[in-house]
């Protein structure tokens, strides 16, 4: 399966490139728009929550910005992933292709969008605190790989469910909304009481672990906690295996259901 996906790389890369072009063509600001939205949200939320949590703005703003772009990447991958096979059905009717390329297209497009934000975040952090480039690259590259594989797997699973159950996308959106509050995107994980129930949820929440993978090295200049790495890797493995099995099961017959 992976080999076929690789031989078709020119195709799905061209699709992702087209998606990005289409997305930026619609706004005059172009690529700047992909920065403006998370930057705007960060600005507003920083003004409010830096006060609520009593943290200095220069610490809270990068924390929030990294959280928002990472969360947006995962959120977009899952929500768009639901529709990815329906979007790709037009190509599936021309020739048989490995179906996993369609969720991959969505994840890539969301990923490039997020990387622009990430570069901006890096520059902001470098300006505010300075960064250890070796540590950042060493920890960020594996983190990006883990995030991409997880997002791809989730997009595959949600996409397959969506071809059979028409309300998958709505359920995914509601679940993500709930998950958003169980993930320290806006609030600081340190602000939770270590004996409270939310603390326990956050500790086991793979999305919280993935945010930790991105944030810890960039904000604190140290490698992510062992616990976060374990949770993120375990979640990635489980979703990847589930996605692999699901894709293999429906691959040949999917075109009949679309």
């Amino acid at each position: 399966m992976l080999r076929e996906i690789w031989t078709l790389r020119h195709f799905w890369l061209a699709l992702a490139r087209h998606d990005l072009k289409d997305r930026y063509r619609r706004s005059i600001l172009g690529i700047a728009w992909s920065l403006l939205k998370p930057a705007g949200i960060t600005l507003i939320l920083t003004l409010v929550f830096a006060n609520v949590f009593h943290v200095p703005v220069h610490e809270y703003a990068p924390f929030l910005f990294l959280g928002i772009i990472t969360w947006q990447f995962l959120n977009e991958s899952v929500v768009q992933g639901c529709n990815s096979f329906r979007l790709g059905s037009t190509y599936l009717r021309v020739r048989p292709v490995p179906i996993a390329i369609f969720p991959l297209r969505v994840v890539l497009s969301a990923g490039i969008h997020a990387s622009i934000g990430l570069v901006a975040a890096l520059m902001l952090i470098w300006y505010l605190h300075g960064i250890d480039l070796a540590l950042v690259l060493l920890s960020l590259i594996p983190a990006i790989i883990v995030l991409t594989i997880t997002a791809w797997s989730l997009a595959c699973i949600c996409g397959i469910l969506h071809t059979r159950f028409a309300d998958t996308q709505q359920i995914a959106e509601i679940s993500l909304q709930a998950l958003f509050y169980a993930t320290p995107v806006i609030y600081l994980p340190e602000s939770l009481h270590p004996t409270g129930w939310l603390y326990m949820i956050v500790a086991c929440n793979p999305f919280a672990a993935m945010l930790e993978l991105v944030r810890r090295p960039l904000l604190h200049g140290e490698p992510p906690s062992v616990q976060a790495v374990m949770v993120a890797l375990a979640f990635m493995s489980v979703t990847a295996i589930a996605a692999w099995l699901a894709v293999r099961r429906v691959e040949r017959r999917m075109v009949l259901w679309l």
């Binding site: 031989t7 020119h10 061209a14 087209h18 072009k21 021309v94």
Partner: peptide
Amino acid sequence: NATGWENIHLRAYLQG
């Protein structure tokens, strides 16, 4: 929404 050129590339890549 893609141009003729973009579609030529897409379709040709799809055909390998």
